[in-house]
């Protein structure tokens, strides 16, 4: 088992190994939804919640079902099923209990089911041999990191909305370049905490 402090894993996954900017996972919704700050905040919050909970759930499934049976090679398919089932269940519950929460967050949940960052976090947790507490904080931290990244991107895109961008670079083009520069900036954190 990896014997890092949970707090190190938590901050490390937000900054030094940001799931989006250091690993480039979860790009598709990052590019398409980051047009507006409010929508980005809703999606980001949904990612934080789902990542934290599914990582913990998948840790339990992996360590108590797959490992004892020697089936760890099936983790991809099992993790995907767990994430999809969980997200759908949560959407149903949120829609029932809170209208405000559904409008702010629930509407994005189906988008997240297919977000590769969520699956990625569960797989990293296995590769890095985290214990349960660390897995939870790793999921939570990665979600917060993703939230920060998309909020920063939404802010920048709002700022450049009126700028004159060469036609060939409009939309996804300029967004990818900005994401690349942000990734370079986040590289400045690398080596401060090692989460692997």
């Amino acid at each position: 088992m990896n014997d890092l402090m949970p707090v190190a894993v938590f901050f490390g996954s937000i900054f030094t190994s940001n799931i989006l900017l250091a690993n480039y996972l979860g790009m598709c919704s990052f590019l398409s939804v980051s047009k507006e700050i409010e929508t980005s905040a809703g999606l980001g919050a949904a990612v934080i919640f789902v990542m934290a909970v599914t990582t913990a759930l998948n840790w339990l499934v992996y360590n108590y079902i797959l490992l004892p049976l020697g089936l760890d090679y099936l983790r991809f398919i099992v993790f995907i099923v767990v994430i999809a089932g969980f997200v759908q269940l949560v959407e149903m519950i949120i829609e029932r209990i809170s209208e405000g929460l559904y409008a702010a967050l629930g509407i994005f949940l189906p988008l997240i089911t297919v977000n590769c960052a969520i699956l990625g976090v569960s797989l990293f947790m296995v590769i890095r041999n985290y214990n349960f507490i660390n897995s939870f904080f790793f999921g939570l931290g990665s979600g917060i990191g993703w939230f920060l990244a998309i909020m920063a991107m939404a802010g920048i895109r709002k700022k450049i909305a009126g700028s004159r961008i060469p036609r060939g670079l409009e939309g996804a083009g300029i967004t990818l370049i900005i994401a690349g520069m942000m990734a370079l900036a986040f590289m400045g954190f690398s080596g401060m905490i090692n989460v692997t």
Binding site: V61, I65, L66, L69, L71, L74, I77, V78, V81, V82, G85, F86, Q88, L89, M92
Partner: peptide, 16 residues
């Protein structure tokens, strides 16, 4: 292996 994957899927499906 088939039983485990099926079991997990069926369990989730039943909950849903």
């Amino acid at each position: 292996s088939v039983g485990t994957v099926t079991g997990i899927t069926v369990f989730l499906a039943v909950i849903l």
